[in-house]
Deep mutational scan, measured.
Amino acid sequence: MPSETPQAEVGPTGCPHRSGPHSAKGSLEKGSPEDKEAKEPLWIRPDAPSRCTWQLGRPASESPHHHTAPAKSPKILPDILKKIGDTPMVRINKIGKKFGLKCELLAKCEFFNAGGSVKDRISLRMIEDAERDGTLKPGDTIIEPTSGNTGIGLALAAAVRGYRCIIVMPEKMSSEKVDVLRALGAEIVRTPTNARFDSPESHVGVAWRLKNEIPNSHILDQYRNASNPLAHYDTTADEILQQCDGKLDMLVASVGTGGTITGIARKLKEKCPGCRIIGVDPEGSILAEPEELNQTEQTTYEVEGIGYDFIPTVLDRTVVDKWFKSNDEEAFTFARMLIAQEGLLCGGSAGSTVAVAVKAAQELQEGQRCVVILPDSVRNYMTKFLSDRWMLQKGFLKEEDLTEKKPWWWHLRVQELGLSAPLTVLPTITCGHTIEILREKGFDQAPVVDEAGVILGMVTLGNMLSSLLAGKVQPSDQVGKVIYKQFKQIRLTDTLGRLSHILEMDHFALVV
Rank of each mutant, 00 (worst) to 15 (best):
residue 265 A to G: 13
residue 47 D to W: 02
residue 79 D to T: 13
residue 131 E to P: 04
residue 116 G to M: 07
residue 82 K to Q: 11
residue 231 A to K: 07
residue 221 D to A: 02
residue 75 K to G: 14
residue 69 A to V: 12
residue 131 E to C: 02
residue 6 P to K: 08
residue 146 T to S: 04
residue 263 G to Y: 00
residue 131 E to G: 08
residue 79 D to M: 06
residue 127 I to Q: 05
residue 144 E to S: 04
residue 24 A to L: 14
residue 96 G to R: 15
residue 12 P to S: 12
residue 62 E to T: 03
residue 113 N to V: 06
residue 132 R to Y: 02
residue 267 K to A: 15
residue 158 A to C: 01
residue 56 L to T: 11
residue 98 K to W: 11
residue 5 T to L: 04
residue 62 E to D: 15
residue 172 K to V: 01
residue 123 S to I: 07
residue 2 P to L: 15
residue 43 W to K: 02
residue 51 R to A: 08
residue 166 I to Y: 06
residue 181 L to E: 01
residue 43 W to A: 11
residue 119 K to F: 00
residue 113 N to R: 04
residue 269 K to D: 02
residue 254 S to N: 13
residue 120 D to L: 05
residue 48 A to H: 09
residue 251 L to S: 01
residue 181 L to G: 03
residue 268 L to K: 03
residue 162 G to F: 05
residue 124 L to D: 09
residue 142 I to K: 01
residue 137 K to V: 02
residue 195 A to R: 05
residue 214 I to C: 05
residue 173 M to Y: 07
residue 95 I to T: 07
residue 11 G to Q: 01
residue 9 E to S: 06
residue 5 T to R: 09
residue 175 S to R: 06
residue 89 M to C: 08
residue 204 V to C: 06
residue 156 L to K: 00
residue 188 I to P: 04
residue 155 A to D: 04
residue 23 S to E: 12
residue 183 A to H: 12
residue 223 Y to H: 00
residue 158 A to H: 02
residue 126 M to F: 04
residue 126 M to L: 14
residue 276 R to M: 10
residue 114 A to D: 09
residue 170 P to M: 04
residue 89 M to Q: 01
residue 70 P to Y: 03
residue 229 P to T: 06
residue 163 Y to S: 00
residue 21 P to K: 10
residue 202 S to C: 01
residue 82 K to R: 11
residue 85 G to E: 06
residue 125 R to V: 02
residue 76 I to V: 04
residue 262 T to G: 08
residue 184 L to V: 04
residue 121 R to W: 00
residue 31 G to E: 13
residue 158 A to Q: 02
residue 30 K to G: 10
residue 209 R to W: 07
residue 112 F to R: 01
residue 56 L to H: 09
residue 174 S to K: 02
residue 171 E to A: 07
residue 103 C to L: 03
residue 23 S to W: 14
residue 208 W to T: 12
residue 160 V to K: 04
residue 204 V to F: 09
residue 261 I to V: 15
residue 150 T to S: 04
residue 273 P to V: 10
residue 38 A to F: 11
residue 28 L to K: 06
residue 112 F to W: 01
residue 17 H to R: 06
